[in-house]
Amino acid sequence: MNNGANNRRAAVTSAGSGLAGQISDLFWRKPVILLLLMLTPPLLWLGVVYIGSLLALLAQSFFSIDEFSGLINYQLTLKTYAELLIPANLDIILRTVSMAAIVTLASVIVAFPVAFYAARYARGRWKALFYLGVMLPLWSSYLVKIYAWKLILAKEGILNWFFELTHLKWLLDAYLAIPLIGGNSLSVSYTGTFLVFLYVWLPFMVLPMQAALERVPANFLEASSDLGATPWQTFRNVLLPLALPGVIAGSIFTFSLTLGDYIIPQIIGSSRLFIGQAVYSHQGTAGNIPLAAAFTVVPVVIMGFYLWMAKRKGAFDAL
């Protein structure tokens, strides 16, 4: 076939030895060169530009702002962090963390049936449908999703219309009369903010939960019911522990996203600030970059702690 030399064989073929060949030879002899070439651009971008920016931001949280001139005082101090602890700022942090926790809890409850059904019962076409049914809302425009709730919660919107239609307006009014969670209308209450958070982050909970539940072998559940466990016992003692890594993985998203969001509470909810809004206004109109930076450290610390806990529970296998 090739040069027909059956009896006279060479150890080395005359494969192309142009420039590409030479470079290729170099990569083979010194694989580390290729590795470095591949890693340099992303590392420059993410490792230098991005991480650099984050560190610069962190550094600024150790500066303070001069109360009279409004200029940044470039002297290392913990004063700005102390400022986080004044009641008004502490309120913001507590409000945000409680909201994140409640949103996370609620999304676990709403996501579970969807994830469980998709993981265990849906087959073939239904499975694909369920998958897309979660993917499409996940990837739908974030602002459009918020906008949709503005429509729903509006005074003349579909929710009020529904309550009027079913003569249950009194129920809604009674609910809105409850302090803290109520308000003038749903769109300016914490409940409204909560609903939008829940809606926007829900798909982020369903997917990892489904992934975790799919890894629970069916015979585990059968074995449990064969042993005479009630469905509730099976759920509590078998399903829940096995689904936990997925729940934690999902909660990383719902928790982190709620902690850092500043658009949802700005558009729907009471006028009280969340961490994201505080960061945004401090860096913007107030020009208090150090305080804004100190505020961003809060979700990072909380998430860092959360991720550390999650890692110990093995949640990352479900991502």
Binding site: L39, P42, L46, L54, S256, T296, M303
Partner: peptide
């Protein structure tokens, strides 16, 4: 570390990435 580095911009709340880049 590289996997973590790549995931970081999406794992951290968007506002942190935004403010960090803005101040940079």
């Amino acid at each position: 570390a590289i996997s973590l580095l790549v995931i970081l911009p999406i794992a951290l709340p968007g506002i942190i990435t935004g403010i960090a880049l803005r101040s940079a």
